[in-house]
Each structure stands twice: as structure tokens, then as C-alpha cells.
Nucleic acid binder design. Structure first.
Length: 553
RNA sequence: GCGGAUGUAGCUCAGUGGUAGAGCACCACGUUGCCAACGUGGCUGUCGAGGGUUCGACUCCCUUCAUCCGCUCCA
């Protein structure tokens, strides 16, 4: 079986799943459009998620393996939020990085992460890139953890000296970081790992948040951002939801919606896009119960993909290592899929389940948090001792009227990518197999083996031939399926085998054919996409048979 | 952002400094009638975009956009 990404992308385009955005104008890097079938598919992904997580959740019964009963509600919040939201959440600071590229080593660095120090070596010189000049004083750099040692190594390497001459280096000034160095000086800087000086480009700002302007006469003062995640819309509405909807801890607030990030390198089809859709849950619970809920959501969300047909061989639940954790996170697990565009043994993130403690609610209460010298989270202060980004000042604590306690809930965040999930389901569905044609000769078949709940078209209806009343009868059956709310296609074009193959290629699970017998005894055949098995059923049972086979949708 | 490759019909691809091609798909008619059938006929192109060289550019040159691969980046 070949799962080459190229073939999957071609099929997506050919059959109207996914198109390049603005394609007739040459395309737009990092943006994709869903065609008719892709729209149905993605809607089924979203609907399945919302149905399984929220709509069908019974708050009166504790699911097996859940620590207790819980409630689930939804919100739908605006794409653009108050700019202060992003300052307090930490996105504003973290998304604005000054970066430099090295022309020699082809590597890219965050300016503030490069340590540097000026050095000379007894009249020895270093070549300058792009000129004939030789320098007797250069600034060496390091991104290593042990930068003191690394700076020494870099300096010796630059001057072409052996390690034993380390004590003959003449250092000037203290170790600094490159963001504090004037750009004019960059010609004398030896980049990490480089052999010549002056290979760094001028620093460029990488603004990962998408900026926009509010107001018809908007100036830069009216700058706002398109949200880089939907989660903050939930956090800032936490109090509203608690005050308005009689929810009691533990409960989750869910949201499905678009988010935007200026990814540096959009790549791999829809996997890394600049506009993408998230399906997020922020689950609020008592701090002392948070570990149990974290485990519950990890397993629950992993199982969700398996239940929708993703094979266990290609789906992993991976706990982050301690050093991989974001500064606020107590624990994070990724649900990852072995996409065909990745190397063997590599996985791409579909969803992150994070234990976020009280970080988010606290941030919006008190202001932007950062780790202090003791390693505790505290409001980040400016040099003048005032909060760097002031919070809302609103009380976001929760009063537990059973325990008579007031506290800040902890949060478990299962954050799924709707486009990534859709892409994973597409990749997972793609199969090539051999099926016999009418002469019994084996023919290559492309079949999208979508789980029936996700299949963009649930059933297709064919009259075996275009006359003898069959099209009319087929139209009746088609009408009944449509009236039942099922996404269906009617096709009387071409040979029957070709019509089956067309449906296989878009993953339609069931094909219903009206033939000569139908006209006699009012029965039709229903053909299964994966087994090719045909069963004869009564016309009046068609809707019940199809909905029955589809299961709960 | 860097390096390499690619871009021609709906799809897969050929092509040459001198009138744009094939197969498949699609549509119509006929024949057949349950797994990519056959016959006949038909439709389809800003040769990714912009500029330059040339009498003439799909072809040569420059720029640009997009996709893929490798680096890099990814709170």
C-alpha cells in the first residue's frame, strides 16, 4: 500500500477536498480552501467532536474512568480580542522575536539567545566575510548552555589556535547578549559555529501574531491581533459562564473556531497553515483533583481518534519531557499521527493535552506571569517595579458552596487542530487495493476508507440503466435518503463499475443500485465500500438500513 | 529565510527558437447491462505570473509567485 503524500494531495484537489487558496492568482502560501467534499468532511470532524465532547455528554453520570460527573458547555467568542488579553496571556511578548540568520552556517537564531563577548589573541586575525579585511578584535558568540566554555572554544577556533592556548585569549568587557549589541558591530561578530566574522544578517522582527487595524480611520494606535488560539476567549469568559449558566466545578467550556499565526515556514499541505481551526476544551476543576482529570482527558482524547478509525500503529500519545514543557505547564501530552510526509518513526501533533494549573485565570486576574528567581510563577515586573502587563483586576476565583471554599480552579486543556485531524483522517483513509473488473482481471482501485461518521457522502444511488423506469425509481430512493438528512449523490452516468469506483475514491460507504429486479419486487442492492459485498433489501427499508449501518451520527 | 527540484488541457505527462500534443477524464449519441466496457463524435489551454533578448519565446535571460525535498524555525 502506498500512502505517498503526493497522491493524497492530488486526490484532494481532483475530487474537491482541498484547494490551494487563491489559486487562480498564483496561490497564497500557508492558506488552503476546502472544496465541496472537504467541507462535508471537516464539518463531520467538527460535528463529531462537538457531539462526542459536549452535545452527547451526560452530566448526570460519571463516564467510566472519569474521576466524577462533570458538565460541558460551549462558547463562541470573537476572533479579535482586547489587546491586553494577549499581553497578559504571554503571547504578545513571546510572539515578537528578533531573529538573525547566519549566511555561512545557514542557521537562524533568536537575537536575545546569543551570548557574545569581545576577544583578541596576540595580534592574530580573523577573516571577514565578503571583504578582504582581517580583524584582530572580534566578538565571539554562543548559544550553548555552558556558554563560558563555548565562547572560549569559539574564540580559539576563530583565531585557529589549539585549546591549550585558552589562557592567552584577551577578553574585553563582560559576556552580553547580541540584542544589546549595535547592528553596526555585526561585521565583527563571529556567528555560532561560523569561521568568519560578519556572516549574520541584520536582525529582523518575527511577528508571529497577525496584526490588524480596528476602525475605518484606524492608525497603528488601533492595532489589534487576530487570535493565535481560541483558548483565551474561554478564559476571559470564565466568570460570565459561571455566573450565567449554573455550571458547577468540575466543568468544561468548549470552543471551535479559527485562529491565526504567522508561521515562519508554512509547510506540509494543511498541516502548518497560517489560518487554522481549533477545537478546544478548557476543563476547570479543583486543584487537588487536577491530576486525575489530566489523565482522564489524555486517554479520552486519544481514544476519540481511534474510535474514528485511526489505526493504533500510527497514533501515539506522547508525554512531554520536563525540559519540553512550557513554563506554565505542569504536564503536557501530545496526540501525534504518523503523517506520510514525515520520516519513518516520526509523528506530527494533532492535539496537545496540557495541565495548565491556574496559570491562565491568574494571568487574567493579576497580569502577565513569569518564573521568578525562586522558580515560582509571579507577576512579571518592569525595571520600575510595576507589572509589565497589568491583568484585569477582576476576581476570577470560584466559590465551592459544598466545601465552602474559594479558590482559583486548575485547568486541563485538550486543544485539537480541526484541520490537522481532518488531514490525518484523509491520510488514514487513503488506500490502494486490487479489485477484479467484469472480466475478473485485477484492477488498481483507490478507495478512501473513511469512518462512516466522517465520510463526506454517506450513500450513492444508481439506476443500473438509464431507462425502463429505473432513473425514476432511483430518484425516489435518493429523495427518501435526502429527506432523512443524509448527504447523498445520484449518478446515472456511465458504466456501473465506473460509478462504484468514483464513489470509492471519495469514500462513500454505501452504494444503492436500482436494477431489473427492483421493478419486479421493489428491492435494491446495497453495496459495501470496503468488502464490496452486496445485499438485497426492500426499497422501504433503505433509509433505516443506511442509518443503521452508519450508527449514531 | 537559505539551497535543490518542479510548474504545459480537469488529471498524469510529452514537446520544440517558427501554427501547442498524447493518454486518461468529461459531455452527446448508439450498443451493453453489477464493479474503471466498446464505437462514433465533441469540449478543454492567459504553456504559473511579470519583464527582457529576438523578425518571432512554451523554449533563452532576469524577476516574482506557488508546490515538493533538505536545512532553519515552530510561544
Amino acid at each position: 500500500m502506498s500512502r505517498s503524500m503526493e497522491k493524497i494531495v492530488a486526490l484532494c484537489k481532483r475530487r474537491g477536498f482541498i484547494f490551494q487558496n487563491s489559486e487562480i492568482y498564483g496561490g497564497q502560501n500557508g492558506f488552503w480552501d476546502y472544496g465541496p467534499l472537504g467541507t462535508e468532511l471537516k464539518r463531520n470532524v467538527r460535528d463529531s467532536w462537538y457531539h462526542d465532547m459536549v452535545a452527547a455528554h451526560n452530566e448526570l453520570v460519571a463516564p467510566e474512568s472519569a474521576p466524577s460527573k462533570y458538565q460541558m458547555v460551549g462558547v463562541e467568542t470573537s476572533l479579535i480580542m482586547h489587546p491586553q488579553v494577549w499581553k497578559c496571556s504571554g503571547h504578545y511578548d513571546l510572539f515578537h522575536d528578533m531573529m538573525v540568520d547566519c549566511r555561512e552556517t545557514k542557521s537562524r537564531f533568536r537575537l536575545d539567545q546569543i551570548r557574545c563577548r569581545t576577544v583578541r589573541f596576540e595580534g592574530e586575525t580573523v577573516k571577514q566575510d565578503g571583504t578582504e579585511a582581517t580583524l584582530d578584535r572580534v566578538m565571539v558568540t554562543s548559544t550553548a548552555e555552558d556558554f563560558e566554555q563555548d565562547l572560549t572554544d569559539q574564540a580559539l577556533k576563530a583565531f585557529g589556535k589549539k585549546k591549550k592556548y585558552a589562557d592567552r585569549l584577551q577578553w574585553e568587557g563582560d559576556v552580553s547578549t547580541l540584542d544589546k549589541v549595535d547592528v553596526e558591530q555585526f561585521a565583527n561578530v563571529v556567528a555560532p559555529g561560523a569561521t568568519k566574522a560578519g556572516t549574520l544578517t541584520a536582525p529582523r522582527e518575527f511577528n508571529l501574531m497577525m496584526k490588524t487595524i480596528i476602525g475605518a480611520l484606524g492608525t497603528d494606535d488601533d492595532a489589534a491581533f487576530l487570535r493565535p488560539e481560541t483558548a483565551q476567549g474561554i478564559f476571559v469568559n470564565f466568570k460570565n459562564v459561571v455566573d450565567s449558566s449554573r455550571v458547577k466545578l468540575p466543568f468544561g467550556i468548549c470552543q471551535v473556531g479559527k485562529s491565526f499565526r504567522n508561521e515562519i515556514t508554512p509547510r506540509n499541505f494543511t498541516f502548518r497553515s497560517r489560518e487554522f481551526e481549533q477545537m478546544e476544551i478548557e476543563f476547570f476543576c479543583r486543584p487537588d483533583e487536577s491530576a486525575g482529570w489530566y489523565k482522564y482527558w489524555r486517554d479520552r482524547r486519544y481514544q476519540w481518534y481511534l474510535d474514528l478509525g485511526v489505526s493504533q500503529d500510527r497514533l501515539i500519545l506522547r508525554d512531554h519531557h520536563a525540559e519540553e514543557l512550557a513554563h506554565y505547564s505542569v504536564g503536557t501530552a501530545d496526540i501525534e499521527y504518523a503523517f506520510p510526509f514525515l520520516d519513518e518513526g516520526e509523528f506530527g501533533e494533532l492535539e496537545g493535552v496540557a495541565h495548565r494549573g491556574d496559570f491562565d485565570l491568574r494571568s487574567h486576574m493579576e497580569g502577565k506571569l513569569a518564573r521568578n528567581a525562586d522558580g515560582d510563577l509571579a507577576v512579571e515586573l518592569n525595571d520600575d517595579g510595576k507589572p509589565k502587563h497589568r491583568g484585569s483586576g477582576k476576581d476570577l476565583t470560584y466559590f465551592d458552596d459544598q466545601a465552602k471554599e474559594r479558590f482559583l480552579p486548575h485547568v486541563i486543556e485538550p486543544s485539537a487542530g480541526a484541520d490537522r485531524a481532518t488531514l490525518a483522517f484523509i491520510c488514514e483513509a487513503y488506500h490502494e487495493d486490487q479489485q477484479p473488473d467484469e472480466k475478473g482481471k485485477m484492477q488498481e482501485r483507490v478507495v478512501m476508507q473513511f469512518h462512516p461518521r466522517l465520510a463526506p457522502v454517506k450513500a450513492a444511488v444508481f439506476p443500473l440503466i438509464k431507462k425502463e423506469g429505473m432513473p425514476e425509481k432511483a430518484a425516489e430512493v435518493f429523495g427518501a435518503l435526502k429527506a432523512a438528512g443524509l448527504s447523498c449523490q445520484y449518478d446515472q452516468q456511465g458504466a456501473i463499475g465506473r460509478r462504484y469506483r468514483r464513489q470509492d475514491e471519495i469514500g462513500t460507504p454505501y452504494c444503492i443500485t436500482i436494477d431489473g429486479d427492483t421493478m419486479q419486487d421493489d428491492t435494491v442492492t446495497i453495496r459495501d465500500r470496503d468488502s464490496l459485498e452486496q445485499t438485497r433489501i426492500s426499497v422501504q427499508d433503505v433509509v433505516a438500513e443506511v442509518t443503521g449501518r452508519l450508527g449514531s451520527v
